[in-house]
Nucleic acid binder design. Sequence first.
DNA 1: GAAAACATGTAAGGCGTTACATGATTGC
DNA 2: GCAATCATGTAACGCCTTACATGTTTTC
Lengths: 181, 181
Amino acid sequence: MAIRYALLGLLTKGPHSGYDLHSTFKTQHIYFWNSTHSQVYQELNKMRDEELVTYETIVQEGSPNKKLYSITHKGEKRLIEWMMEEAVKPAKIKDEFLLRASAFQAISVEEAVTLLERILAREKAILAGTSQWQLEHYGEQDYPSYLEIGSYLTSEFGKRYAKMYVEWCEWALELLESYRA
Amino acid sequence: MAIRYALLGLLTKGPHSGYDLHSTFKTQHIYFWNSTHSQVYQELNKMRDEELVTYETIVQEGSPNKKLYSITHKGEKRLIEWMMEEAVKPAKIKDEFLLRASAFQAISVEEAVTLLERILAREKAILAGTSQWQLEHYGEQDYPSYLEIGSYLTSEFGKRYAKMYVEWCEWALELLESYRA
DNA sequence: GAAAACATGTAAGGCGTTACATGATTGC
DNA sequence: GCAATCATGTAACGCCTTACATGTTTTC
């Protein structure tokens, strides 16, 4: 249900295509939201029927035509109503690696170390990517324009999350040393 | 699909009822997994059919009867196969509050501050709860028995996650001050 | 007297994923 | 030549949630 608010939120910053919106989920929003391109296109169609968004077709040479979606007045109203609701649902997380980690007692220390090292490398790469992205977008400024406040806040969250993950991996690897024969 | 591995993982530490297993999701696993009681019961039935788990009925006075589930040899084998798979899917997170935060440009600074303060309080309470839980379970020890390694690693992750969230909220509130008229 | 904890299930429906489908351009 | 990027969709399926269903004991 909340996918629509994710899309409406992005559209408050200006018109975007379905492809753009999905790309954002894959890159910037990865730390707190996820979706697939097919769901994005389906939800955009529903929202168009409910007049929360409109679009105009952009004819392009070289690339396929695209639909540039804009948020309507009605859409913006609906978004803000949702944002100001009293209740905020707790986050729902499904992290397969942590699920494996929670069952490390079922495998050997050596195997656990192997799994952890792989994830440490992955998270380091993610941290580097997020830091890079933030530098490219906000590098010189102390703080960005208010239009960019959402992206700025959540990219910082992403960076802190990745950093925390890396540090936890390193701590866990050290701890596992204690169990080595 | 992975719900079954979450359940199998917990059962490597000993027999548990469906109610117990779901309680764990609501408390300890909240940082990396979530489910509902109805899904837990349904999945346990499926796994019983596939002989990944067995159960015995415990007749209780005062409380309703319960089914104590145990992991089978076949179940353990299946779990370890899954754990050692090369590919680990990236985490899927759905955090409604961060979704709201990502659209803060659509509301006023004052409204954003109100929302943030509410979440800061929530996360502080969660951090306190997790710290308390960890203290009760592992307080005196430097590190726990290997049987408890999974819970220990992930509860530490939970603590670090909550701490990071609190610090990010405080940082965000400070930043928002810059935009105040 | 009400709410929370203990305890387990079924049924309906929808959200979300995976697979199928197409096709041009750019970079390695 | 192959993979990646750009670009948008449909169809099938199933995981997962919400609602329905029941009943006792303990705590406030």
